[in-house]
Nucleic acid binder design. Structure first.
Length: 202
DNA sequence: TCAGCGATTAACT
DNA sequence: GTTAATCGCTGAA
């Protein structure tokens, strides 16, 4: 069963459930007439104003974080370290700034586009392992920030893929040591054994 | 107005 | 194992 996920899927306030449920879903982008797609194999949840790791912690509201306060079902694209674009799916309802970071995808179609964008062979797992790499492989940039995920530039489909419970692993989030105790929350989800999942260290 | 740093990656030694 | 790349947000002056 193949279908584009509807807006009501994203407005679910249970971001942890969505972060886990998005594993196995297919992320599509269409830029300049070229379609590319990948299976989501790694995510992280960012939950609202009480999450110290979130840009919206404490109710911070700026031109950058404004996107996260929108109603669920839009893309939040943010430039990190001045080099890498990170792609998030905004969840929950308006004024509740929750999001799911897409950390890794498994290339499904448009591999030639990905090779061109990443300048490396699609045979290398590094082509879409890690949030910056996955976004670049799919051609995601800031022009997609705030776009509806129900539109025709970027969207997510359900192809009926689901992983058995013992293949879905949760653990602490990566790269958020500054978040003190919240850095220990097991809000990262990934598919065990998938070669595109980023490794904590390598 | 401006210095400091980040939800990172790849190319070095 | 270490470090450069590089830009917009944050918070203090």
């Amino acid at each position: 069963m193949i279908m584009k996920l509807p807006e009501t899927y994203y407005t679910n306030p249970d971001t942890l459930f969505l972060a886990k449920d998005l594993l196995g879903k297919i992320l599509y982008t269409c830029s300049g007439g070229n379609i590319s797609a990948g299976i989501i194999v790694e995510t992280e949840a960012y939950g609202g104003i009480s999450d110290q790791a979130s840009h919206a912690y404490g109710g911070r509201r700026t031109s950058r974080t404004e996107t996260m306060y929108l109603n669920g079902g839009v893309a939040y694209v943010y430039l990190c370290y001045g080099i890498h674009y990170l792609f998030n799916v905004v969840t929950s309802v308006e004024d509740d700034p929750q999001a799911v970071l897409i950390r890794a995808i498994e290339p499904l179609s448009g591999q030639e586009m990905m090779q061109h964008r990443r300048n490396m062979p699609v045979s290398k797992p590094a082509i879409s392992s890690g949030p910056g790499s996955a976004a670049k492989a799919l051609g995601i940039d800031r022009s997609l920030n705030g776009k509806e995920l129900t539109g025709d530039e970027i969207w997510i489909e359900d192809h009926g893929i689901s992983y058995p419970a013992d293949q879905v692993v949760s653990g602490p989030r990566i790269g958020v040591a500054y978040a003190r105790e919240d850095a220990l929350l097991p809000w990262r989800f990934y598919v065990r054994g998938n070669r595109y999942v980023s490794k904590p260290r390598s």
